[in-house]
């Protein structure tokens, strides 16, 4: 196992530490790095201009997560309700697009949404004669792209607890007088929350740091955190600020992951505590 750990240390830990260190230096006059200690890069992250981009990224990622979870849960529920022998087939086809290239899946939406794309064609076919609607290069297009790209994972994550659910639990709830809606709200949903949480965290984390989707579907000027980082490194040549932005991104991610771990821990802790009581 040693070679692997050396590899990870040399090519992940050290470079990431380097980026962290970079964030504390000044930008050189000609774009290089001036090795004097400063905190101003982090100060700049909270500048209204950049803080706004963080908020916008969080809003877009949050919306995409919400939509993906609603659609993904419904799909997983429908798959879990299908006859047993069909379930692996549906699941396979739900996940299949996930295995085709991310760029291509995103590109497919350019084809759909552009001014002379399929949707415009459809509108024309239904008798629409006005200006083609501008759908590409909008926030909506970015959200659609994110939902499309990450939906298969949400379906997979939600299907796992749904398929393990004992169908007699829902029957028991009905038997005790609950309607189908109440049964869903009070029995099925609470028991499948772990899958929803796993799917949601995945979509949110991958969306908020996304670079490709905003670049392709949001247009050249559209910026989320990932694009901002890209610009600092490849166009503005302000590596220290780019590094500070990257660290802020990591911090947000860690916060989300920790929140999830904490919630899971507390649930497990409650169970363990109560178990101790049962033994005593």
């Amino acid at each position: 196992m040693a070679p692997a750990l050396v590899w990870l240390t040399a090519l992940m830990v050290v470079p990431c530490a380097l980026v962290l260190a970079l964030a504390f230096f000044r930008r050189g006059i000609y774009g290089g790095i001036d090795y004097t200690f400063t905190l101003e890069n982090f100060g700049l992250v909270f500048d209204p201009l950049y803080a706004g981009i963080f908020l916008k990224s969080a809003r877009i990622a949050g919306t995409a997560t919400l939509i993906a979870v609603v659609i993904g849960y419904a799909a997983a529920y429908a798959i879990a309700a299908a006859p047993r022998r069909w379930q692996p087939v549906f699941l396979f086809f739900a996940v299949l697009p996930f295995w085709s290239n991310y760029l291509i899946r995103t590109y497919a939406w350019i084809v759909l949404l552009n001014r002379e794309g399929l949707i415009t064609q459809l509108l024309r076919w239904f008798g629409y004669t006005g200006e083609p609607p501008s759908m590409l290069y909008t926030e909506g297009a970015v959200i659609a792209g994110l939902v499309y790209n990450y939906l298969p994972f949400v379906i997979l994550a939600c299907y796992a607890p749904l398929s393990r659910l004992n169908p007699e639990l829902a029957e028991a709830s009905r038997d005790l007088g609950a309607s189908a809606a109440t049964t869903f709200r009070r029995v099925i949903l609470p028991l499948t929350v772990p899958g929803i949480a796993a799917g949601a965290v995945f979509v949110f984390v991958l969306s908020i740091g996304n670079f490709v989707t905003p670049a392709l579907l949001g247009g050249g000027r559209f910026q989320m955190i990932g694009n901002l980082v890209y610009d600092q490194f490849l166009t503005a040549n302000d590596w220290p600020f780019g590094a500070a932005l990257a660290m802020a991104l990591i911090a947000i991610m860690l916060l989300v992951l920790m929140a999830q771990a904490l919630a899971a821990d507390r649930a497990a802790g409650r169970a363990a505590e109560a178990n101790g009581g049962a033994d005593g």
Binding site: P15, L18, A243, L249
Partner: peptide, 24 residues
């Protein structure tokens, strides 16, 4: 954490980290 990190670290972050590292 060391084993799990490469799977969840945003690729843009790993990308700039390696770029900085290699160029340094």
């Amino acid at each position: 954490a060391l084993i799990f990190a490469p799977m969840i670290i945003p690729d843009i972050v790993l990308a700039i980290a390696l770029l900085s590292f290699f160029s340094m």
